[in-house]
């Protein structure tokens, strides 16, 4: 019973984990902006999650009345992966960190993380309301 109650917030949790890891990776890229031969990395997760949803046949239609809750797409073992950026141009010292891109990505990631925090907070709040019957 508890597993079903927390199934949906589980997706938000996974996205939060990925976003956290992304922050670390971007911080590492930024810290190594002057390191010779350093190649920047990025975190891939959202595309893998999207594949998991598409492969299980779930459509994101909100108008589908039959779906009271999202079915389990079997994404329990999905983990974010760190991938090196290999096709960006490198400078003379072999370093390919684009500081502007990294800073932009960091800002985007912070907003993304904060949004997820708000959403998961609201989800838990709704569960609490349901348990307390609005009291």
């Amino acid at each position: 019973m508890l597993k079903n109650i927390f199934m949906h917030s589980g997706y938000l949790e996974k996205a939060l984990d990925a976003s956290w890891l992304r922050n670390e990776v971007i911080a590492n890229n930024i810290s190594n902006v002057d390191t010779p031969n350093f190649k920047s990395s990025r975190v891939e997760f959202e595309s893998a999650l999207k594949d998991a949803f598409e492969n299980s046949g779930i459509k994101m239609k909100k108008t589908d009345k039959k779906h009271m809750d999202m079915q389990d797409v079997g994404a329990h073992d999905l983990k974010p992966s760190v991938v090196k950026k290999v096709n960006t141009a490198a400078r003379m010292d072999g370093n390919n960190v684009d500081i502007e891109t990294e800073q932009l990505d960091m800002v985007k990631n912070v907003i993304y993380y904060n949004l997820l925090i708000q959403k998961i907070g609201k989800e838990f709040g709704r569960i609490k309301t349901a348990i307390n019957e609005g009291k």
């Binding site: 922050n23 930024i30 998961i120």
Partner: peptide, 23 residues
């Protein structure tokens, strides 16, 4: 470069502090 890393620290601090709002 120094300033970019200071910005990174502030961004991380923002994330961590925001996560305390859960609940």
């Amino acid at each position: 470069s120094y300033e970019a890393n200071v910005t990174a620290i502030n961004a991380f601090k923002n994330m961590a502090m925001k996560s305390f709002d859960i609940g």
